[in-house]
């Protein structure tokens, strides 16, 4: 195996690993751009993954599983909305609560329904999102450089991966080129102005929270039915927080969010690959260091050493209409 193929495989797993991050990160983007902080990305993803695993086991359909994941995740998102928009509760407290509820419920229900220690049964390929080969893969495979690049890197992912990356330009378009996007950004910066213009602040924020739920659900479905074959206890393993870190890294912008997620996915892929392989100059890097690197990078960024990350102005603050 030559080094070119190794690098290609590294990038290939980077794409696989960053897809759920990207979905969750874009989910957070809709919510936080509308002024609703969301620590609960992790919990919504986890609940979505469980719903997808359970429904795929019962009905054997990946698309039904996706639908279930989205519904469950949106429901949790609406709980967050109910607490933080309608009742003006603390958004961070509410997000933390959702993470715990999801972490506990998935294990308890998983154990009660499937009796496999909190996991869902292993899914057959028919109930999963399988890799799809793009047209012309075999024909182009013989070409130098372009062929393997197309074959290894671009083709052969599940449909959800392509969806995740297509959502980046789509989100950009929604955010910067549509009326909804303009209002979404405005309500995160200055809700009073939006209100003065006669637009309902709560309804706009609820829509943002629903968008967030949909995307977290897709991310969860990806984990349980595309990347893995079934739900495993605590399978998000902090991905929701890394997505949050990526969002801050990207300063709440869609295209940059993609690059941040690719960076974190790349670190993850390198970390997996480097286990047991010492580096030429440094020696063997502990796995734990590679695992902690995204968090360390985020802290360094937050400290303002790599440019300042300024959150949406009205983020985290409930809007009080009448004064």
């Amino acid at each position: 195996m030559d080094s070119f193929t190794t690098v290609l495989q590294l990038f290939d797993s980077t794409i696989r690993l960053s897809a759920p991050l990207l979905l969750a990160c874009l989910a957070g983007l809709y919510s936080e751009r509308a002024g609703i902080f969301d620590i609960g990305l992790e919990g919504k993803m986890l609940a979505g993954a469980f719903a997808a695993g359970a429904v795929a086991t019962w009905f054997g359909s990946a698309y039904l599983a996706l639908l279930a994941a989205v519904l469950v995740s949106v429901a949790l998102g609406l709980v967050h909305g109910f607490a933080s928009i309608t009742h003006r509760g603390n958004q961070i407290v509410s997000g933390v609560a959702i993470n715990f509820i999801a972490a506990g419920t998935t294990v308890i229900l998983g154990q009660a329904w499937f009796s496999q220690g909190g996991r869902t049964p292993s899914l057959p390929n028919a109930a999963r999102f399988n890799p799809i080969n793009l047209p012309g893969t075999e024909a182009m495979r013989g070409l130098p450089i372009v062929g393997p690049l197309y074959y290894e890197l671009i083709s052969g992912h599940s449909v959800l991966v392509y969806l995740a990356f297509l959502l980046v330009p789509f989100t950009w378009w929604v955010l910067y080129r549509t009326r909804f996007g303009l209002r979404l950004r405005a309500v995160g910066e200055n809700p009073a102005a939006v209100d003065t213009a006669g637009i309902s602040v709560p309804w706009l924020r609820y829509r943002a929270v629903i968008c967030c739920g949909v995307l977290c659900g897709i991310a969860g479905a990806y984990l349980a039915t595309a990347q893995g074959a079934g739900f495993v206890k605590d399978m998000t393993a902090g991905k929701g927080y890394i997505a949050l870190a990526a969002l801050i890294f990207a300063k709440w912008r869609p295209v940059q969010a993609m690059f941040a997620c690719l960076l974190f996915g790349f670190l993850d892929a390198v970390g997996i690959r480097m286990q047991g392989h010492p580096l030429p100059l440094i020696g063997e890097v502990p796995v734990q260091f590679m695992q902690a690197l995204p968090y360390i990078l985020t802290v360094v960024l937050l400290a303002g050493f790599i440019g300042k990350a300024i959150p949406p102005k009205a983020g985290g603050v409930a809007y009080v209409k009448e004064r």
Partner: peptide
């Protein structure tokens, strides 16, 4: 069917109702 993870749910619900709501 009820393991210690039940506590995690109760903990989440307490945070939700006593905190956010």
């Amino acid at each position: 069917n009820i393991s210690r993870d039940m506590i995690v749910i109760i903990q989440g619900l307490v945070i939700l109702f006593a905190g956010a709501l």
